[in-house]
Amino acid sequence: MRIAVCIKQVPDTKSVKMDPETGTVVRKGVQSIVNPLDLYALETALQMKETYGAETIAVSMGPPQAIEAVKEAIAMGIDGGALISDRAFAGSDTWATAYILAAAIKQLGPFDLIICGERATDGDTGQIGPEIAAELGLPTVTYVNKLIDSGKDEVTVSRLVENGAEEVAMDLPGVLTVVKEVGEPRLPTLRGKLKAKATDITKMALKDLELNTSYIGLKGSPTRVVKIFQPKVVRECRKVYAENDGMVEEAVDQLINFLKSKKVLAS
């Protein structure tokens, strides 16, 4: 079995700060990490590798420094990796990104399974998984929270939906997107780090892929960002202190009154 895991390098949301004056994102000092939700995709692949035996490949599209994300995946136990990077890819929206990723996966393939995280914490669209599936003409199951069984031709999984879970079986090859319930991602080991350093990571640029150049980059993207602005969530918190017994009573009364004014409680 061969499994491809799509991962993205994202800024660490914890260190992302907004400049209150300009309303822009302060990039200085922001470190990059593997999209936290992609770690569950990597973990799923590694569990499958342990249980059923598989060759696992991490695939990432991004600037040259995104190679760090691929190395981190290998340090966690993934067998190999590929970085898809070209200036011509810059500005790609999800359609163009999925188009490029699908071409790369086809070239690196054949794969029995492609696993993606639920979404990336920066773009937050969650569209890449199903879009890759559509582009490759494969079935896809999203929001997978449990891998129930896997055979040569079929996987059975549970997927989380609004009011419960669905159990479905999907023919292979196919695409899964996973949520964090699949299992806590393992940490990279020293052995893994050393292996990652020694592993030759495949680098793919525009010239290495079979792509229609009018479908890539900013120009090939169907969507356009026309405006970015700061949300106007203006809240003024009425804070009451309840740091000892006497104050608790009064604070609770004030809260009750507030809830009544907001019609959360009947007045």
């Binding site: 929206d93 999800t94 359609w95 999925a98 188009y99 937050d124 669209t125 969650g126 569209q127 890449i128 998984g129 199903p130 879009e131 599936a133 559509a134 582009e135 896809t140 999203t142 929001y143 997927r159 989380l160 939906v161 609004e162 993207s221 169907p222 969507t223």
Partner: peptide, 23 residues
């Protein structure tokens, strides 16, 4: 932007070659 909508629309948008904005 439900579990089915967020699965279905990207699948369709890719095939129909058109843009899709999430959520």
């Amino acid at each position: 932007a439900t579990t089915s909508g967020r699965t279905l629309l990207p699948y369709v948008a890719m095939t129909a070659h058109t843009g899709l904005t999430a959520d």
